[in-house]
Design a protein around this nucleic acid. Structure first.
Lengths: 337, 337
DNA sequence: AATAGATGGGAATGCGCTTTCCAAGGTAGT
DNA sequence: ACTACCTTGGAAAGCGCATTCCCATCTATT
């Protein structure tokens, strides 16, 4: 890249130091006349500061890293959008890594972020992280060096961030479904090594049990659309649900699972909600446009992302945790018949 | 950040040059014994190269910038996922900017990418860019300085990239719908200042007209879910469709618009496809799980992103254009009754 | 055995910028 | 009028690394 600060300085007939002070928010403001000269020189030459060099000199990069499981998943893309908004206008850029939930890729991403000296790392979604994990170690070292780690969605011993009250919200949902008169439940739990899935399921099931009801069946599977589809199809094939005894309400640990499950239900010739009621979790954007519309727990995903984006810019030692709660949204898919 | 290459070198008892050669893929490979010493020293100290400094010294950053209109839109998030995949294993990191289609934000993002000396800039989605645009100017300067510009989805005079044959695919869709027996069409065109929307609509309409059919009505609106919803609702209220004369097939310039439109249709008490048939464009992931399933044009979005991600790493002067075609997927929403 | 050539390691320079630290000029206070 | 202080611009020292020379040590050639 061609034009450097030194060129601008020469063009303006001032020292490089002065040029730097004019063009980049320094404490010291040169006189208005000189400033004008510098600015117009910069303009004329088409000067762009080299962020790398600035980062090196300032030892702060103006970058934050965001790690998500899958950017194509509406859950994460909504969060990403929020983060982006939270960062708007600050000049901070977002480094994105979509890891496909692969721990190695995740570790690689964190390492890369460390290398790029991102000012903060945002981790969205939960992961089974044991304390002696390499990932945990890398993050800890990062923090020791002044980096900020912010969790989105799941707490982490070592970091603050935005938490979701998955358990509480799931309990609320269970309560509402009970109120509607549902008594027979199945649970598609997703991958129980994920804290998010675990909390949602435990919140739901415990609430049921405290009302004296045990789910007919709880099935584990992938925490994805296909996971929901496959498990539901399998479940229907197994006949464990004993649908002759009446409608069953299936709680899916997230919305995309619910989507898959609903397709499986339809493909086996059953109706939602008449034969099988379905509830999801997250309230991803398209959910309201479905037929039947799907009961879920509304999570302010974008807002969560925004909070995280803003929080990231705050004081580096701020380790607060914000808990965001979600609330049930009852729609047609859980109509009691 | 604490530990530098110099520290590693000292720890290993070698010069910084040697340490550098060992740790970062240099041509010259020091002897195996020395290399081991250096590597173990690096390990012991927990050394991470400073990407900023490397970038400065190497004058290449290992970054590419991706600009999308809205990362929460499945169209773009699918592409982003593909790009990420295309970059996998290369060590290149993705700088993401979701601009909300705001030209100023877009320009800001490009400027920021220039500052960060990204090796390439990927622009997804179309934009009304006149030749004398500031954005075009910035991109041109970027190219002159060795940066690579890659368009995804829309051609741009100054850059290569992956194009979509929106027009051809839309024509194919029209053809198929005609084959199904549809004769009365409405078009929700989205924002016609976007080349993507324009091409899709023109391809569709021209095909109709070459068969002697003119759409009953073409309505412009936002290229979003809400745009589809609002225009459709409005359209139904206006009664321009004259539904008593029979089923109308509504072509929406993208899938999320179709989603919104379908909700509007249902809310007004009509049925899809019995009263109004609906077709979209893109084949976003959730589309097959809907009821009724929605006819659309399948675009290999993720594949497109992946191609772009890989293309980006190719020779800087490679200005080729790849044209990706899409094909109709007929589903229930356009069943002829 | 003598020398050209190859190999391996180190000192030093530069990437582009920020930021002390200095010096010079100005202002105010007594 | 003189000292004390504030303001302004400039010189120069890094920030952490890659890389170009350069020198020393080895190997191959005749």
């Amino acid at each position: 890249m061609a034009v450097r600060l030194a060129d601008v300085a020469k063009e303006a007939g001032v020292s490089q130091a002065t040029a730097s002070r004019v063009l980049n928010g320094s404490k010291r403001k040169p006189s208005e006349e000189i400033a004008d000269r510098v600015r117009s020189a910069a303009e004329r030459l088409g000067y762009f500061p080299n962020a790398q060099a600035q980062a090196l000199a300032r030892s702060t990069a103006g970058l934050v890293g965001l790690i998500v499981h899958d950017i194509a998943d509406p859950y994460f893309s909504s969060i990403a959008r929020g983060v982006q908004h939270g960062l708007d206008g600050t000049g901070v850029q977002l480094l994105l890594s979509s890891t496909g939930r692969d721990p190695d890729v995740e570790l690689g991403a964190v390492r890369s972020f460390l290398s790029h000296r991102t000012d903060a790392i945002l981790l969205a979604g939960s992961r089974g992280m044991s304390g002696d994990d390499e990932l945990a170690a890398a993050l800890t070292r990062y923090q020791e060096n002044g980096g900020k780690v912010v969790m989105i969605g799941q707490p982490l011993a070592l970091a603050g961030g935005i938490q979701l009250d998955n358990q509480g919200a799931a309990a609320e949902l269970a309560q509402e479904l009970l109120k509607l008169g549902h008594r027979r439940f199945a649970v598609l739990s997703g991958d129980q090594s994920l804290a998010t899935a675990r909390d949602r399921v435990s919140g739901f099931v415990e609430k049921l049990e405290s009302s004296g009801i045990a789910p007919v069946v709880v099935r584990e599977g992938a925490f994805t659309r296909d996971g929901g589809y496959l498990e539901m199809a399998d479940l229907l094939r197994s006949n464990d649900l004993d649908l002759e005894s009446g409608q069953v309400c299936v709680f899916c640990a997230n919305d995309v699972m619910a989507l898959g499950a609903m397709t499986a239900i339809r493909e086996s010739g059953l109706r939602v909600p008449e034969d099988v009621a379905v509830a999801g979790f997250d309230d991803i954007p398209t959910l309201g446009d479905l037929v039947p519309s799907v009961t879920t727990v509304r999570l302010p995903l974008e807002e969560i992302g925004r909070m995280a984006g803003e929080f990231v810019l705050a004081d580096g030692d701020d380790q607060r945790r914000f808990v965001v709660s979600g609330h049930p949204v009852l729609r047609e898919s859980t109509r009691k018949v």
